[in-house]
């Protein structure tokens, strides 16, 4: 069949400077720069000290591991509030298995298996009973997972994981000046980013998040994808539990509290819509490092943790309003 009206449709994208500048990632990057400038002017002699900076960043990397799977889950239009409880339970299991067997390898394996199974349970509940709300189900399993951990540990802690040198260095070890955990984090960022934006699976996730019915009619296994992503989130909870143990050496039943909200916060700031279908992983990464550096910089000038939370909270409110303000500007322009 030939084109009947002789009309042609362009298939190469024209990018204007304006549209690039108006992208969410560009705005985030400006905020990122601003945060750095403010931090630097607050403590000019300390802020760009490499070892300080890297150590400050490292603080946030353990809970930061959750950002990757959370980005996928939000992209699908789902939510997972159970990651904190999952990390806690996986870390508990790691400690128990290590102390019982003496093998840290067995401990890691058990932790990753626990996390994955917990994620699988979330996924199975949500995909077998699709009318259940993910927020409610994962809120419940969060309590369940942490509850199991509390049942096992009581008031005690499971300890001793830092006795294994190489395990401890997962968090404390360095390659040159750079911590291993930072390298792993960046590698994971690249992998998750490529999966999200460059593969069939990624595109299908976007489709599911935008419109589940259209995705189903396009032959996409919507529930299969959700199951995979929830299980993947569980797997990443197991991995996070491993780094958590390397960092702290002991696990109590309040471990990893609030990880779910930290991750959701970073994703939303990064432009990943909780309604699904929108956002980029690079955006989430810029948001992650912005918050991490803000915490570090404010910590340098001895601002208390609680006050830092106030500042970050206020910043979030302002930032999430930007798209609305942008729309107003656009409308104003068109009127002219």
């Amino acid at each position: 069949m030939a084109t009947k009206s002789g009309r042609t449709i362009a298939h190469i994208k024209q990018r204007s400077v304006g549209s690039v500048l108006l992208r969410w990632e560009s705005i985030l990057f400006l905020i990122f720069l601003a945060v750095n400038i403010v931090n630097y002017s607050l403590s000019p002699d300390k802020y760009f000290n490499t070892s300080n900076l890297l150590r400050g960043l490292r603080e946030t990397l353990v809970s930061g591991m959750i950002v990757f799977p959370m980005a996928f889950i939000l992209l699908l239009g789902d939510i997972d509030l159970s990651v904190g409880g999952n990390v806690c339970l996986s870390a508990t299991v790691l400690g128990l298995v290590y102390n019982a067997s003496g093998s840290i390898w067995l401990g890691i394996l058990a932790a990753v298996a626990t996390g994955t199974v917990c994620g699988l349970i979330n996924g199975l509940l949500l995909t077998r009973f699709t009318e259940l709300a993910p927020m409610v189900v994962t809120l419940a399993t969060n309590i369940l997972y942490r509850g199991i951990s509390e049942g096992i540990l009581g008031d005690t802690a499971t300890k001793g994981m830092q006795k294994v040198d190489w395990f401890k260095s997962l968090y404390f070890g360095k390659l040159g000046d750079i911590y291993y955990i930072l390298i792993i984090f960046l590698v994971l960022a690249v992998i998750f980013g490529l999966v999200m934006h460059k593969t069939v699976f990624g595109r299908q996730m976007f489709a599911v998040g935008e419109n589940k019915r259209a995705a189903k009619y396009a032959g996409i296994g919507v529930e299969k994808i959700r199951l995979i992503v929830f299980t993947l989130a569980g797997f990443m909870c197991g991995i996070t539990a491993m780094f958590y143990c390397a960092k702290t050496g002991s696990v109590m039943s309040n471990a990893a509290e609030g990880y779910e909200l930290d991750a959701i916060c970073v994703c939303v700031l990064g432009g990943i819509s909780t309604a699904g279908g929108k956002g980029t992983l690079p955006g989430a990464m810029i948001a992650f490092f912005t918050i991490a550096l803000l915490k570090y910089g404010l910590g340098l000038v001895n601002i208390k943790g609680q006050i830092i939370n106030v500042i970050i909270g206020a910043l979030l409110v302002v930032v999430v309003m930007i798209p609305t303000v942008q729309d107003l500007i656009k409308k104003h322009r068109i009127k002219k």
């Binding site: 489709a207 935008e210 419109n211 019915r213 259209a214 995705a215 189903k216 009619y217 279908g277």
Partner: peptide, 8 residues
């Protein structure tokens, strides 16, 4: 609803 993702 079923045929298209309108936002794409």
């Amino acid at each position: 609803i079923e045929g298209l993702i309108l936002d794409w």
